[in-house]
Simulated assay, not measured.
Amino acid sequence: MRYVEEFRDPTQARALLKAIGRSAEALGASRAAPIRIMEICGGHTHSIFRYGLDKLVHEGIEFIHGPGCPVCVLPRSRVDEAVTLAERPGVIFTTFGDAMRVPGTSRSLLQAKAQGADVRTVYSPLDALELARRHPDREVIFFGLGFETTTPSTALSVQQAAAEGLTNFCVFVNHITVPPPLKALLDDPHMLLDGFVGPGHVSMVIGTHPYDFIARDYGKPLVVAGFEPLDLLQSVLMVLEQIREGRAEIENQYARVVPEHGNPVSLAAIEAVYEPRPSFEWRGLGEIDASGLRMREAFRAFDAEARFQVGYGAPQGRAQVPDPEGCACGQVMTGRMKPTACPQFGRGCTPDTPLGALMVSSEGACAAYWTYGGARVAAE
């Protein structure tokens, strides 16, 4: 716990909560609606509920849960395509554990494994690379998932595979970027937000300037935040102070980890291997221009979609697959609805029988409500 306890100090937390209350009271005198702050990252959502921050902050503040869980925003069609790849003869399909139980149209990767597909959980794309070295007679596919946080490790693994001349390794690329969906949300006239708590791990890679458009074009403040209770409380206070003072700026509360211009080595690897897709499908948001990444031509041999002609690489194109009837993953994931307002929450959809990714992902809002919010008792 060394270097962590100082960010969980109760005395400092109480001082921050008092300051938040004063700012909220000052703003409340001129507002009829609550101050709506979106925490973009699913890790922040879990921290907010784990430490009860939603109940501790002033009642005039409402946390809105954003699309910052990369497994959650994956549409069912992409899960179906992953299962199709995993069930090919001679394939070893590798994935992070979070994606194993995400339901597709008919089954998840875990169910495909139970039915005979060779699906293996790995902790890094380097693990998949090692499997390709040890099994030269098998096709090893890595399920490349995540925002800018995990994209560099996949890019570096592809570069290593190219350097070694490995021909039995490829990536099913589902890497996505944070700024485009935020623009899509801000362009939605029904999405009323006063400010943002920005993602810490993503910003560690990309820095703070990719968010400049939020303040410049939309007049909304964003504060990049860490994940401990004091980080989040300080970030909320910084957002409130900007609103109270009539400012809209991009500020960095997590400066101990996040450099202004990001990580140059990681950014160089991403730039070398990937290019923006013309569009990419997001759960609840549909196709968003330039929001996903694909392999550049120089590395297209390592692109599973191109190699096996599935997904965006299929000659006949691809179709979007709707969520199950009554499932409100899209509305919850984009902050339009709280998890407990979904008619399936705690009834048709539980951690044991999930209908959507938000209930099974370690960063999903529904999982946070179920685990920390007391919602399970209410549902029962």
Rank of each mutant, 00 (worst) to 15 (best):
Val257Tyr: 02
Val258Trp: 00
Val258Thr: 04
Val258Arg: 00
Pro259Val: 06
Glu260Asn: 08
Gly262Thr: 03
Gly262Trp: 04
Pro264Phe: 08
Pro264Asn: 14
Pro264Ala: 14
Val265His: 12
Ala268Ile: 06
Ala269Asp: 02
Ala269Thr: 03
Ala269Gly: 07
Ile270Asn: 00
Glu271Asp: 15
Glu275Ser: 12
Pro276Thr: 13
Pro278Phe: 09
Pro278Gln: 12
Phe280Ala: 11
Arg283Trp: 02
Gly284Glu: 01
Gly286Phe: 08
Gly286Ala: 08
Glu287Arg: 15
Ile288Lys: 04
Asp289Pro: 11
Ala290Pro: 05
Ala290Leu: 14
Arg294Val: 04
Arg294Ala: 03
Met295Ala: 14
Met295Phe: 11
Arg296Tyr: 07
Glu297Asn: 12
Ala298Ser: 13
Ala298Gln: 14
Phe299Ser: 02
Phe299Arg: 00
Arg300His: 07
Arg300Phe: 02
Phe302Cys: 06
Ala304Arg: 00
Ala304Met: 06
Arg307Val: 14
Gln309Gly: 07
Val310Cys: 09
Gly311Arg: 01
Gly311Thr: 03
Gly313Glu: 03
Gly313Arg: 01
Pro315Ala: 13
Gln316Lys: 13
Arg318Val: 13
Arg318Phe: 15
Ala319Lys: 15
Gln320Asn: 09
Val321Arg: 01
Val321Phe: 03
Pro322Ser: 09
Glu325Lys: 14
Cys327Ile: 04
Cys327His: 04
Cys327Gly: 05
Cys329Gly: 02
Cys329Ile: 14
Gly330His: 00
Gly330Gln: 01
Gly330Glu: 00
Gln331His: 13
Met333Pro: 01
Arg336Gln: 15
Met337Ala: 13
Pro339Tyr: 12
Thr340Gly: 10
Phe345Val: 10
Arg347Ile: 13
Thr350Val: 11
